[in-house]
Design a protein around this nucleic acid. Sequence first.
DNA 1: CTCCATTCTGTTGTATACATAATGTATGCG
DNA 2: CGCATACATTATGTATACAACAGAATGGAG
Lengths: 215, 215
Amino acid sequence: MSGTAASGREKAYAYLRENILTDPDVQGRFLNEQELAAEIGVSRTPVREALLLLVSDGLVELIPQRGAYVPPVTGREMSELMELRGVLESHAARLVIDQGRVPARTMQDTLDQQAALPDELNPEAAREFIRLDTLFHQQLIDAAGNELISRTYSKLHVRQILVGVSALFRTGGRRGQVCAEHQVILDALVSGDSAKAQEAIDHHLAVTRDILLRN
Amino acid sequence: MSGTAASGREKAYAYLRENILTDPDVQGRFLNEQELAAEIGVSRTPVREALLLLVSDGLVELIPQRGAYVPPVTGREMSELMELRGVLESHAARLVIDQGRVPARTMQDTLDQQAALPDELNPEAAREFIRLDTLFHQQLIDAAGNELISRTYSKLHVRQILVGVSALFRTGGRRGQVCAEHQVILDALVSGDSAKAQEAIDHHLAVTRDILLRN
DNA sequence: CTCCATTCTGTTGTATACATAATGTATGCG
DNA sequence: CGCATACATTATGTATACAACAGAATGGAG
């Protein structure tokens, strides 16, 4: 494994994050502290601390005297997220083109890996698909060279994964469409056509939003 | 007073936040938990929880086995923040103009209050100045009707306050300039000139950035 | 005198015990 | 039978005690 430093708090944090992101059933529920403590194998204290950290990821919400609530993703939130993503990605696209810093190689690599996945996604492949999808967009953002924007974008994107996993199973053959749209974006970036890139980004996000809204 | 619900954690949170935002000396230092606990009048537990919550505001950073660190604001971070603010505010400006939702009255009120402050700012007036400045920009953002963007922007802006307070004292007569620039932005919004509004926003943020960078 | 090993002190990290508030249940009344 | 109220249960919130680790002080060897 990679990070086996595993202080109790980090262990609990990783466990909870993984749990919330992969299991759609936890959404809309309150998390029981001592139950989780028993599952993870630590006391309530590090569990509580992990829950507090998850607030900054937007994955849990603290209701006083009630505990840690996992707010479900609403359609409105998804729409708003796509709008914001569009703003940030368009900005990044304009910047990397103007500065001649389009990470063509890197993004194409990611895209190729994504395209190599089977069209019928088992749970594991679906997670990999989402990871690569996230990576593709993040690579564009990161190329803009603004660390603050990168971190902001990264945190926002987490909320989308919440709904992405379950949504992927409902829509067969989406893989090809996503890859095609990504290719259009990348081609526009490489060709240096800023307007076209922004258009492609907006289109991709609009399609994604519409898919996710069928929920 | 306003919020006297004062559960220990909230009390500690409010105390720490206030402390970090107003006292420039805490930047770059580690916070001592039991010291704070004694000052606030609670035990270490709620203090620790408050510190974990402050992570989501970007005001503290947790270093394992070392504790809660208050990262100083760097020049680069300020530049990056202004860039991001520009992106978000320009987007909001375009939207509110297109949708005919410019909150002219509200923003003018804020601006008038700001202009009514004395030119020589004592500490209290400086805080009020910053509050109104923040409010002006937030009102524009909020008018765009995207709650996610509003929250995101709000959280980002907190980092600027960190440096804003001390910077204000170094620059006399900045009040008039800020108000003038705000007025230009608002006028452009009211006139429905999207390009002009974006330009005014970018100019205002660039000037602000340059002022803050003289630090 | 300098450098390194070792001890010592103070701080963070975790577990546990207790206080407090909320929810669900049972009970009595209208 | 429906509803309000009192109570029991269960969860969260807080305090305290202990464990583990990091950095500073100290002592000795070269």
